[in-house]
Protein backbone atom coordinates (compact mmCIF):
# COMPACT_ATOMS: atom_id res chain seq x y z
CA UNK A 1 0.00 0.00 0.00
CA UNK A 2 1.10 3.53 -0.55
CA UNK A 3 -0.42 5.68 2.13
CA UNK A 4 -1.90 9.04 1.03
CA UNK A 5 -3.84 10.11 4.11
CA UNK A 6 -4.72 9.12 7.67
CA UNK A 7 -7.98 9.71 9.52
CA UNK A 8 -8.28 9.23 13.27
CA UNK A 9 -11.35 9.23 15.51
CA UNK A 10 -11.41 9.38 19.30
CA UNK A 11 -13.93 10.12 22.00
CA UNK A 12 -13.92 9.54 25.78
CA UNK A 13 -10.27 9.21 26.85
CA UNK A 14 -9.24 10.33 23.39
CA UNK A 15 -6.87 13.12 24.33
CA UNK A 16 -4.79 10.74 26.46
CA UNK A 17 -4.79 8.13 23.71
CA UNK A 18 -3.85 10.61 21.00
CA UNK A 19 -0.96 11.77 23.19
CA UNK A 20 0.51 8.31 22.75
CA UNK A 21 0.07 8.27 18.98
CA UNK A 22 0.50 11.69 17.36
CA UNK A 23 3.84 12.67 19.00
CA UNK A 24 5.33 9.42 17.66
CA UNK A 25 4.80 10.45 14.05
CA UNK A 26 8.27 11.50 12.86
CA UNK A 27 9.11 14.83 11.24
CA UNK A 28 9.55 13.07 7.91
CA UNK A 29 5.99 11.73 7.85
CA UNK A 30 4.79 13.16 4.51
CA UNK A 31 1.07 12.40 4.70
CA UNK A 32 -1.84 14.54 5.98
CA UNK A 33 -3.54 13.39 9.17
CA UNK A 34 -7.13 14.40 9.97
CA UNK A 35 -8.47 13.97 13.47
CA UNK A 36 -11.97 14.10 14.95
CA UNK A 37 -12.25 14.18 18.73
CA UNK A 38 -15.67 14.54 20.31
CA UNK A 39 -15.63 17.79 22.27
CA UNK A 40 -18.50 19.89 23.62
CA UNK A 41 -19.77 22.40 21.02
CA UNK A 42 -19.40 25.67 22.88
CA UNK A 43 -15.78 25.11 23.92
CA UNK A 44 -12.69 26.73 22.56
CA UNK A 45 -10.48 24.32 20.72
CA UNK A 46 -7.58 23.67 23.09
CA UNK A 47 -6.46 20.54 21.24
CA UNK A 48 -4.46 22.39 18.61
CA UNK A 49 -2.26 24.17 21.14
CA UNK A 50 -1.88 21.06 23.23
CA UNK A 51 -0.69 18.87 20.36
CA UNK A 52 1.32 21.56 18.59
CA UNK A 53 3.59 21.51 21.63
CA UNK A 54 3.92 17.72 21.63
CA UNK A 55 4.21 16.84 17.93
CA UNK A 56 6.93 16.89 15.29
CA UNK A 57 4.39 17.68 12.58
CA UNK A 58 2.54 20.92 12.00
CA UNK A 59 -0.76 20.94 13.91
CA UNK A 60 -3.70 23.17 13.03
CA UNK A 61 -7.45 23.51 13.10
CA UNK A 62 -8.98 22.48 9.78
CA UNK A 63 -10.34 25.34 7.67
CA UNK A 64 -13.09 25.23 5.09
CA UNK A 65 -11.85 24.71 1.49
CA UNK A 66 -8.27 24.30 2.68
CA UNK A 67 -6.04 22.19 0.42
CA UNK A 68 -4.47 19.29 2.31
CA UNK A 69 -0.76 19.59 2.94
CA UNK A 70 1.54 16.62 3.64
CA UNK A 71 2.96 16.23 7.13
CA UNK A 72 0.18 18.27 8.75
CA UNK A 73 -2.24 17.23 11.47
CA UNK A 74 -5.70 18.78 11.15
CA UNK A 75 -8.22 18.86 13.98
CA UNK A 76 -11.94 19.31 13.32
CA UNK A 77 -13.20 22.50 14.98
CA UNK A 78 -15.86 22.15 17.70
CA UNK A 79 -19.43 22.07 16.38
CA UNK A 80 -18.49 21.49 12.72
CA UNK A 81 -18.22 18.31 10.73
CA UNK A 82 -14.94 17.81 8.90
CA UNK A 83 -15.17 16.38 5.39
CA UNK A 84 -12.73 15.63 2.59
CA UNK A 85 -13.62 16.73 -0.93
CA UNK A 86 -12.48 15.11 -4.15
CA UNK A 87 -9.34 16.99 -5.14
CA UNK A 88 -7.98 16.66 -1.61
CA UNK A 89 -9.35 19.77 -0.02
CA UNK A 90 -11.02 19.92 3.37
CA UNK A 91 -14.55 21.13 3.94
CA UNK A 92 -16.49 22.01 7.08
CA UNK A 93 -20.23 21.80 7.51
CA UNK A 94 -22.78 22.46 10.20
CA UNK A 95 -25.05 19.61 9.10
CA UNK A 96 -27.12 17.83 11.74
CA UNK A 97 -25.27 15.85 14.40
CA UNK A 98 -24.41 12.26 13.47
CA UNK A 99 -24.36 9.74 16.33
CA UNK A 100 -25.21 12.74 18.54
CA UNK A 101 -21.87 14.25 17.59
CA UNK A 102 -20.62 17.20 15.58
CA UNK A 103 -17.90 16.69 14.51
CA UNK A 104 -18.65 13.04 13.76
CA UNK A 105 -16.03 10.43 13.00
CA UNK A 106 -18.27 8.67 10.46
CA UNK A 107 -18.59 11.85 8.37
CA UNK A 108 -14.82 12.31 8.15
CA UNK A 109 -14.09 8.64 7.48
CA UNK A 110 -16.78 8.16 4.82
CA UNK A 111 -15.84 11.25 2.84
CA UNK A 112 -12.11 10.48 3.16
CA UNK A 113 -12.72 6.91 1.96
CA UNK A 114 -14.42 8.40 -1.07
CA UNK A 115 -11.55 10.76 -1.78
CA UNK A 116 -8.58 8.45 -1.06
CA UNK A 117 -9.85 4.90 -1.62
CA UNK A 118 -7.08 2.39 -1.02
CA UNK A 119 -4.63 5.14 -0.04
CA UNK A 120 -6.32 5.74 3.30
CA UNK A 121 -5.71 4.43 6.81
CA UNK A 122 -8.50 4.86 9.38
CA UNK A 123 -7.76 4.64 13.10
CA UNK A 124 -10.45 4.23 15.77
CA UNK A 125 -9.42 4.85 19.38
CA UNK A 126 -11.15 4.81 22.77
CA UNK A 127 -14.73 6.07 23.14
CA UNK A 128 -18.11 5.46 24.74
CA UNK A 129 -20.30 5.41 21.62
CA UNK A 130 -20.49 3.80 18.20
CA UNK A 131 -19.26 6.69 16.08
CA UNK A 132 -16.56 5.60 13.64
CA UNK A 133 -17.87 2.07 13.11
CA UNK A 134 -19.72 2.84 9.87
CA UNK A 135 -16.88 5.09 8.85
CA UNK A 136 -14.23 2.44 9.33
CA UNK A 137 -16.35 0.00 7.36
CA UNK A 138 -16.40 2.51 4.49
CA UNK A 139 -12.60 2.88 4.72
CA UNK A 140 -12.11 -0.88 4.49
CA UNK A 141 -14.67 -1.31 1.70
CA UNK A 142 -12.86 1.32 -0.35
CA UNK A 143 -9.68 -0.74 -0.03
CA UNK A 144 -8.08 1.23 2.79
CA UNK A 145 -6.58 -0.07 6.03
CA UNK A 146 -8.41 -0.10 9.38
CA UNK A 147 -6.55 0.11 12.70
CA UNK A 148 -8.40 -0.21 15.99
CA UNK A 149 -7.10 0.34 19.50
CA UNK A 150 -6.85 -2.80 21.60
CA UNK A 151 -10.00 -2.77 23.74
CA UNK A 152 -8.39 -4.05 26.94
CA UNK A 153 -6.12 -1.00 27.01
CA UNK A 154 -8.76 1.49 25.84
CA UNK A 155 -10.17 3.78 28.50
CA UNK A 156 -13.64 2.99 27.12
CA UNK A 157 -13.93 -0.03 24.84
CA UNK A 158 -17.35 0.64 23.26
CA UNK A 159 -16.07 2.51 20.25
CA UNK A 160 -13.19 0.22 19.30
CA UNK A 161 -15.44 -2.82 19.87
CA UNK A 162 -18.12 -1.43 17.56
CA UNK A 163 -15.49 -0.60 14.92
CA UNK A 164 -14.09 -4.13 15.01
CA UNK A 165 -17.54 -5.66 14.59
CA UNK A 166 -18.37 -3.38 11.66
CA UNK A 167 -14.97 -3.94 10.08
CA UNK A 168 -13.64 -7.42 10.93
CA UNK A 169 -10.61 -6.94 8.67
CA UNK A 170 -9.28 -4.11 10.83
CA UNK A 171 -6.02 -4.70 12.71
CA UNK A 172 -6.06 -4.47 16.51
CA UNK A 173 -3.15 -2.50 17.96
CA UNK A 174 -1.67 -1.10 21.13
CA UNK A 175 -1.33 2.66 21.08
CA UNK A 176 2.46 2.63 20.75
CA UNK A 177 2.25 0.39 17.68
CA UNK A 178 0.06 2.74 15.67
CA UNK A 179 2.52 5.44 14.59
CA UNK A 180 5.18 2.89 13.51
CA UNK A 181 2.53 0.97 11.55
CA UNK A 182 1.44 4.14 9.75
CA UNK A 183 5.05 5.05 9.08
CA UNK A 184 5.63 1.60 7.57
CA UNK A 185 2.71 2.11 5.19
CA UNK A 186 4.35 5.18 3.68
CA UNK A 187 7.26 3.12 2.40
Amino acid sequence: MSLRAVVIGASAGGVQALSQVLPDLPAGFRVPVMVVVHIPPHKENALVDLFARKCHLQVKEAEDKEPLAPGTIYFAPPDYHLLVEAGETLALSSDETVNHSRPAIDVLFETAADAFGSGLAGVVLTGANQDGAKGLKAVCEAGGVGLVQDSATAEVATMPDAARIACPGARTMYLDEIAPALQAMTR
Binding site: H81, L83, E85, A86, A91, V107, E110, T111, D114, A115
Partner: peptide
Protein backbone atom coordinates in the same frame (compact mmCIF):
# COMPACT_ATOMS: atom_id res chain seq x y z
CA UNK B 1 -22.42 23.25 -3.71
CA UNK B 2 -19.63 21.52 -1.79
CA UNK B 3 -20.05 18.04 -3.15
CA UNK B 4 -19.05 15.82 -0.24
CA UNK B 5 -21.86 17.17 1.94
CA UNK B 6 -24.43 17.02 -0.90
CA UNK B 7 -23.45 13.42 -1.56
CA UNK B 8 -23.90 12.40 2.07
CA UNK B 9 -27.29 14.04 2.15
Amino acid sequence: YARASIKRR
